[in-house]
């Protein structure tokens, strides 16, 4: 991604992005945020459904008019669980992403700007953290923690283990800004390094940081769901991950209860897809060659074919 394109976009203030992929992705994400914010009220207060009410007479019912997405083994309503669970899943994703993005910005931008020994040290720390696989580490920490501290602990440990990838990218971007005029000007007026990092570099990198934030949200949600699926983390709170765990636990698969585990996974996948669309769109905005490849070449080919047709006839 080039920093220039993103920086130009940032100076224009907030306006609806023109790229169609970015728009579609953002729309889908807003939908999920709305669902997490308002959904639980609508489902519980307006429709009087409950995510936790046990009804053993309606165990593992397929979708019907009474339960639009069927029921679990203990007769809980899957749709209600899906809506209520969106809150914890998004909350963990967002909190973990805030932690990991903050860390990655601090480490990456500071390293890239300061250079020399601090940079060498931060780079080694980043790279070592990157090559140590995060899932087994998460699993160990989560199993020692044993659910203490609820969703916040899970978000914390995911955030603390997922920052290195972002830090690498931000360091590379900062390196390309380090010798720009606006940074040199700030240095000459005697601004402190901290001021330059927080007031000059980070705002310039803001569009890229927000794109990587979306990616971090999705990865954190994947990690949360993966942990819950292994029986760690928040399995007693209703979330998309814990739904998958209980579905697996009650042998929903061999019993063919697809309505129990397809919806939560599909929701996670849709959030992933939305963030993917935004990131691909931003790649296209920043890399004209990709954009041209994705759209204009097709157009040009069509036009050429038309011209050839006209000349022949």
């Amino acid at each position: 991604m080039s920093v220039d394109a993103a920086a130009v976009a940032a100076r224009g203030g907030f306006r609806l992005p023109e790229n169609r992929k970015v728009r579609a992705g953002l729309a889908l994400l807003s939908l999920f945020v709305l669902l997490a914010l308002l959904g639980p009220f609508v489902v519980e207060d307006v429709f009087g459904m409950s995510a936790t009410a046990i009804d053993t007479s309606a165990s593992m019912q397929p979708p019907s008019s009474a339960h639009l997405l069927g029921t679990t083994a203990t007769g809980e309503d899957v749709l209600a669980q899906l809506v209520v669970g969106s809150r914890i899943s998004l909350l963990v994703g967002l909190t973990a992403a805030v932690i990991s993005t903050t860390l990655s910005v601090l480490v990456g931008v500071a390293g890239g700007y300061l250079g020399g020994r601090p940079d060498a040290l931060l780079t080694v720390v980043t790279n070592v953290s990157l090559v140590i696989p995060s899932l087994p580490l998460l699993v160990i920490v989560a199993s020692y923690v044993k659910g203490r501290g609820g969703w916040l602990t899970v978000a914390l440990i995911i955030g603390l283990t997922s920052w290195p990838w972002g830090a690498r990218g931000k360091r590379a971007q900062t390196l390309s800004l380090r010798r720009r005029d606006f940074v040199l000007a700030a240095e000459m007026t005697g601004e402190s390094r901290w001021w330059i990092i927080t007031r000059e570099l980070i705002p310039t990198l803001a569009p890229l940081i927000s794109a990587s934030f979306l990616g971090a949200v999705v990865l954190s949600m994947f990690a949360d769901a993966g942990l819950a699926f292994m029986g760690l983390g928040n399995i007693n709170l209703t979330s998309w991950g814990s739904m998958l765990y209980w579905a697996q636990n009650a042998s929903a698969l061999p019993r063919g209860a697809w309505w129990w585990f397809v919806p939560p996974g599909a929701c996670i996948a849709l959030v992933g897809l939305a963030a993917g669309l935004v990131n691909f769109g931003i790649d296209e905005i920043a890399n004209p060659r990709l954009r041209r490849a994705n759209r204009d070449i097709r157009r040009a080919a069509k036009a050429a074919a038309k011209r050839a047709h006209r000349e022949n006839s």
């Binding site: 994947f222 998958l244 996948a269 992933g272 993917g276």
Partner: peptide, 8 residues
Amino acid sequence: MTALPTFW
């Protein structure tokens, strides 16, 4: 494909 959780 890359947007889907593999275990799902």
